[in-house]
């Protein structure tokens, strides 16, 4: 008779089981706390106005009114708001990247006087909340004739994201061996060619991460857009959704249905970069 193979069936200690259960409990709590607002938002978006204000209301809708998601497109210029958001987020992402890539490259690859101070200034610029700068921004935009315009918002969002772009891309570039570009210059590239043909393709994961992150930031921007834009046709989605938040009546079901539309692109983009974002942020910390 052969002995049972005890080595393969290692008994799990009670302590380990309890710790594991405790961990699951904490994770579940965090998930509930994080996801409940979205769940409540979806449930409210599916309710009728009467049901929302009913004293006997339940969390789940009695009848799911999917028509709310269709109605919002006729009750407010949602398509216009969405297009404005795409223009603002897309435009500011392009500008931030066009300015950020050369700046990050210079900071990663070149040595110049005042480099440390320059990096410090970039960090400090990130420390101000947009609200603090609002009056100044408004004055600058006014002098440039860019208040109440999409172009103005594109510039502002690009500027707000510049520091983050430079820091993240600098980390990405520093993680890539400079010898690769040197090999390219010996192979026949100019400095710009070596950057375009070698560095940027190699840094693509970091660049895409930064790009999507800026897009999401610009997409979610609310305060400055609220203060600068007064014409309905120029409003981005974040501000436009407020149409359902009237003086006398708040259409919660439409407000939340529109909000769900607003977060869909962000969720999709974030899902795309989730893995890269973590490695992208880490690559800045450690020189590879």
């Amino acid at each position: 008779m052969s002995e049972p193979n005890t080595a393969l069936k290692k008994p799990v200690s009670v302590k380990k089981v309890i710790l594991r259960l405790l961990l699951y409990f904490v994770v579940l709590d965090v998930c509930i706390i994080t996801l409940y607002p979205y769940f409540a938002m979806l449930c409210t978006a599916l309710k009728s106005r009467a049901e929302i204000f009913s004293p006997n209301g339940t969390v789940l809708p009695i009848t799911a009114l999917w028509s709310n998601f269709i109605d919002i497109w006729s009750r407010a210029p949602m398509a216009r708001y969405m297009l404005n958001s795409v223009l603002i987020a897309g435009g500011s992402t392009i500008i931030a990247m066009l300015c950020g890539i050369p700046a990050a490259y210079a900071l990663a690859r070149m040595k110049f006087k005042g480099q440390t101070a320059f990096l410090g200034v970039i960090i400090v610029s990130q420390m101000f909340a947009p609200v603090v700068l609002l009056i100044g921004i408004y004055k600058v935009m006014l002098s440039m004739g860019l208040t109440d315009s999409i172009l103005g918002l594109i510039f502002i969002n690009a500027a707000f994201n510049q520091a983050f772009t430079v820091w993240l891309l600098r980390g990405t570039f520093m993680g890539i061996s400079a010898e690769m570009e040197q090999a390219a210059t010996i192979d026949g590239c100019t400095r710009v060619q070596s950057m375009m043909k070698v560095l940027l393709p190699v840094a693509a994961p970091g660049i895409v991460t930064t790009l999507i992150f800026i897009f999401i930031n610009a997409w979610n921007e609310y305060t400055v857009a609220l203060c600068l834009i007064s014409t309905d046709g120029f409003k981005p989605l974040t501000v436009g959704i407020n149409t359902f938040n009237g003086y006398n009546i708040i259409e919660w079901q439409y407000l939340f249905a529109a909000s769900i539309f607003a977060i869909i692109p962000v969720v999709i983009l974030f899902m795309c970069i989730e893995k890269n974002l973590v490695s992208g942020l880490a690559s800045g910390g450690v020189k590879g």
């Binding site: 010898e179 690769m180 040197q182 090999a183 210059t185 010996i186 192979d187 190699v202 693509a204």
Partner: peptide, 28 residues
């Protein structure tokens, strides 16, 4: 400029272009 010296260099870290195939690396 390095590109005009008609030299080639092999680096300790190989310095290959990771986004290109071996053929593309050599043809670059």
């Amino acid at each position: 400029e390095p590109k005009n010296r008609d030299i080639a260099m092999v680096f300790q870290s190989y310095a290959l272009y990771p986004h290109m195939t071996v053929y593309e690396n050599m043809a670059f």
